[in-house]
Design a protein around this nucleic acid. Structure first.
Lengths: 215, 215
DNA sequence: TAACGGTGTAAGTGACCACTTACTAGAGTA
DNA sequence: TACTCTAGTAAGTGGTCACTTACACCGTTA
């Protein structure tokens, strides 16, 4: 510790948080030692306990930061969506989702969900379920405006958000199998599939009746 | 320990595996102690180390069991799908997925994926990626047979499998927000959405042109 | 019956971990 | 200068953990 002497406690607090965020994300709560956090933050382990009464409080502080993230709040703010055609609203929502995606937090989030941490539930309440609800409202509106079929809105909302969530989760956890391409474009591809499905519309030249067409 | 005396080593091995499976699933690898496994299996901790050289070998034994699961192998066996219309193949695949779903294993799997366990990757290679590949082949076939639009098959395959995976994952991790209803029916609902999308087909009475219809 | 091997156990053991204690260094202020 | 307050540290401490050791029990077989 030749140099490091004159450092404000604010910056050391930030350094502890940053180091802890990365380590908790990579190894989970139990898998991360306070000694390793101190090592990565390049400061003494005892300092951690000056700033946070216990290891678990450090963990909750990190999740809480996200709970107060304004960028995330913007995604579930439906205001702008109301004034545009539903189809465009879907595209906007998908793009926003791709923008807000944070791989470090994703890992933290699933770690804490699996470890049954109360804050993961809080995060779900505050963001995920409201995001699903926003999508559901859009679908209901689409049906009312006769643009959408009369589908089950809650199932459809899960389907749409599921495509997005699963895509980002898999890309992060299994990078070897990640889908190549710009995440925003792929998210827009999901929009197209969600809106139109894969089935071909009535073909230009009808050469059969019912559901049986020739290949 | 009044009674328990005459018990075969086979049954104790099974009991160790069963106890470990539940605990690892609930708390992850680091979060589970060998003492707690012994307590749940109602036997002495030292016995665990007679059957498995180390804790991690117990964990890998559990994942390996799944890797050899025949029921899972059936899902990605495309044989039966080839002889039926693509639409029906999708419904079959979705139903099989719902049948094979195992919540205990799901947790184990994501725990090990987050903890960067090599066997999680092996599981992805052996099942998940082959499942996605099967769906992708079905889509390619649907396009070739002119039943499907000319969509990007790999994106569409992720979309379809993502709906299913995300639905089951969320139901397990956030039961308070679980979608009510029979999982098989909901999976079939996803099929419908995937095949047809949400957008309404050309309406019976056309009362406008372009994309702007009246509500 | 005596030696053996498979099944089980109680009691460690050293390593590691979250957290504490008791201390130093220096800046601000009277 | 003397006091105080804050930032920082080295060296514990008690508890927990994965894993080991040494031994008991008992059915089988030579």
């Amino acid at each position: 510790m030749a140099t490091a002497n004159r450092r404000s406690s604010i910056s050391s607090r930030e350094r502890i948080l940053a180091a802890a965020r990365e380590l908790f994300a990579a190894r989970g709560f139990k898998g991360t030692t306070t000694a390793s956090i101190a090592r990565r933050a390049r400061l003494n382990e005892a300092l951690i306990f000056r700033h946070f009464p216990a290891k678990k409080d450090l963990f909750t502080a990190i999740l809480r930061e996200k709970l107060e993230d304004e960028r995330l709040a913007r995604i579930i703010d439906a205001a702008e969506c109301r004034s545009m055609p539903v189809e465009d609203a879907f595209r906007l929502v998908a793009e926003r989702f791709a923008e807000a995606f944070d791989p470090v937090f994703l890992r933290l989030y699933y770690h804490s969900a699996l470890e049954d941490h109360a804050l993961a539930d809080a995060f779900y309440d505050q963001f995920v379920s409201r995001f699903v609800a926003l999508v559901e409202q859009l679908i209901v509106r689409g049906i009312r405006e006769c643009r959408f079929r009369n589908v089950d809105a809650s199932v459809a909302a899960r389907a749409f958000t599921g495509m997005l969530r699963s895509y980002f989760l898999t890309n992060e956890l299994f990078p070897r199998h990640a889908l190549r391409g710009d995440p925003k474009e792929i998210s827009l591809g999901f929009c197209d599939l969600f809106l139109n499905g894969v089935t071909r519309r009535r073909p230009a030249r009808v050469n059969g009746k019912g559901r049986r067409w020739m290949p």
